[in-house]
Simulated scan of single mutants.
Amino acid sequence: MSKSNTILYLDGVSVSFDGFRAINNLSLVLDKGEMRAIIGPNGAGKTTMMDIVTGKTRPDQGEVFFDGQVDLTKHDEAEIAMMGVGRKFQKPTVFESHTIEENLMLALKGPRSIFPALFHRRSVAEARQIDDILGIIRLGDKRDELAANLSHGQKQWLEIGMLLAQDPKLLLVDEPVAGMTDAETEETARLLRDIARDHSVIVVEHDMHFVRELGVKVTCLHEGSVLSEGSLDFVSADERVVEVYLGR
Rank of each mutant, 00 (worst) to 15 (best):
Ala196Gln: 08
Gly40Asp: 06
Lys3Ile: 13
Asn103Thr: 04
Lys91Glu: 11
Val70Glu: 13
Gln166Leu: 01
Val53Tyr: 01
Val204Trp: 07
Leu30Asp: 05
Ser200Cys: 13
Lys169Phe: 02
Val85Tyr: 02
Arg58Lys: 15
Glu101Val: 09
Met180Phe: 04
Val53His: 04
Ser2Cys: 15
Asp174Arg: 05
Asp141Trp: 05
His152Gly: 14
Ala178Phe: 03
Ser231Trp: 07
Lys217Ala: 10
Lys74Phe: 05
Phe89Trp: 15
Thr48Val: 12
Arg122Lys: 09
Ile80His: 09
Phe210Cys: 06
Met162Arg: 12
Gly86Asn: 00
Glu223Arg: 14
Glu243Gly: 07
Glu229Thr: 05
Ser16Asn: 09
Phe20Val: 12
Leu104His: 00
Thr93Glu: 11
Pro92Asp: 06
Met162Gln: 11
Ala147Val: 04
Glu126Val: 07
Ser97His: 15
His98Met: 14
Gly84Ser: 07
Pro59Val: 03
Ile23Glu: 11
Gly62Ala: 09
Tyr245Met: 10
Met162Val: 03
Lys88Arg: 12
Val70Met: 15
Leu227Met: 10
Ile195Trp: 00
Glu229Phe: 01
Met49Asp: 00
Asp60Gly: 06
Val70Asn: 15
Thr48Tyr: 01
Val29Phe: 05
Ala107Pro: 07
Pro92Gly: 01
Leu106Gln: 09
Gly43Lys: 06
Ile130Arg: 02
Pro92Trp: 02
Asp194Ala: 10
Asp182Lys: 12
Glu187Phe: 02
Met208Trp: 03
Gln90Trp: 08
Arg58Glu: 10
His206Cys: 04
Val242Ser: 12
Glu184Ser: 08
His75Lys: 10
Gln156Glu: 11
Gly247Ile: 01
Asp60Gln: 12
Arg197Val: 12
Arg58Ser: 14
Arg212Lys: 15
Phe65Lys: 14
Asn24Asp: 12
Glu213Asp: 15
Lys109Pro: 15
Asn149Lys: 11
Ser97Ile: 05
